[in-house]
Computed example of a mutant assay.
Amino acid sequence: MALPAKTAPHGSPTLQVSHTENYRELAGAERAAVLLLALGEEHGRKVWEQLDELEVRQVSLAMARLGPVSPEMLENLFVDFVTRLSSKGSLTGNHDSTERILSSFLPPERVSAIMEEIRGPAGRNMWEKLSNVQENVLANYLKNEYPQTVALVLSKIRPDHAGRVLAILPEEFALEVVNRMLRMEAVQKEILDKVEQTLRVEFMSNLSHTSRRDAHELMADIFNSFDRQTEARFITALEEENRESAEKIKSLMFTFEDLGKLDAGGIQTLLRNVEKDKLAIALKGATEALRDVFFQNMSSRASAMLKEDMEALGPVRLRDVDEAQGIMVNVTKDLAAKGEIMVSKSKGEDELVY
């Protein structure tokens, strides 16, 4: 499908789009998606019918992710239609508009399969998509499969992700999978295609239902973003309505006070990554016990200087303290995500890496 486009310096066709003086380049599938959105259901039907299934999937995925399409974009895409199209305003590509257009010419089951793939994990093929599925979800599915099948799947996804999945599988089963992977030879295309199809039908199609986050975990993340006063207000109100849910949310939240659970190495790593002025403000509003945790992990000279800085601050607004403490919590989560420190948000012995 040939679409009008500007030519980039390297010679390949690109389309520059202006959004309040911001520019981005669209790939071929995205240009096709803009054109088909503009043509609409009636005029675009004949174009859709000429595409093969792979092209339909590629254009559908691009259309679902397209977002707002400005009049400038339409003008660059097909100059001869710009007056009529720009007078109707801009277009928006999203999941609903994509599904509606596909439903106008494809059978319902095919539309469902395409939309399920679009809404599923990112990736150009099945193995890339599986590499973006949460390891606990994938492991929970694979533990019921034959070791040879699991070995094939893990050999096709990213090694780091395969390692995390193996670590979750039952030890004896995981060892059998490792042995199968070591003895694995070239796999026939027919077998590979059959495994892909099974994964698509039995696993990926149900993924949206199995990977939903627990509502309490989601609310704990939201509550973490509140300032102290807003958090206290919502927690108090929720305790009156549903004390059980309030307690569960509080147990899942990672707060500034939880920094006291870091080990000595974690505290020292955090200190190296937090600006000294933010540290002083944050500790200004901390409990005496939490201050001592930080002071004890600093040299005598450094702790003395920090105490002097805190005294020199004088009275500090609660809003500024909340902001500084929030920064320290976010830095802690970032460091934990990189594997540089371990954090625990439970009252027991279980440690969780964010």
Rank of each mutant, 00 (worst) to 15 (best):
N179C: 03
A282I: 02
P121L: 05
A312C: 03
S97P: 01
T287W: 07
E185Y: 05
F226E: 10
Q229Y: 10
F223M: 14
N242E: 09
S131G: 15
Y146M: 12
L130C: 10
A289D: 13
L138M: 10
A162Y: 03
S211F: 10
A29V: 12
A113P: 13
L182I: 08
N94Q: 02
S86I: 07
S90M: 06
R65V: 10
L15K: 03
R24Y: 14
N297Y: 02
H43E: 15
L169C: 06
E117I: 10
V316S: 05
D52Y: 11
L54D: 15
G326W: 14
S103R: 04
G163P: 04
A302E: 00
L106D: 01
L306P: 02
A264H: 09
I327T: 11
V69H: 01
N242C: 00
P121F: 05
A2L: 12
V17R: 00
L352S: 11
H161L: 06
T92D: 10
P13K: 02
R45Y: 10
H95P: 03
I101E: 00
L175S: 05
E217N: 08
E30L: 05
M1N: 11
V316Q: 07
G260S: 13
S112W: 11
L290W: 07
A304V: 01
E176I: 00
M184P: 04
T7Q: 12
S103Y: 04
V201R: 08
E231N: 14
A62W: 15
V47D: 11
F81I: 00
H19A: 11
G260W: 03
H216T: 14
T210S: 14
G348S: 08
I267T: 00
K88H: 09
L218N: 06
K333S: 07
G67Q: 07
R65I: 08
S90N: 06
D334Q: 10
T332P: 12
D160N: 03
I341L: 12
R212N: 07
Q58M: 13
V178I: 13
K194C: 10
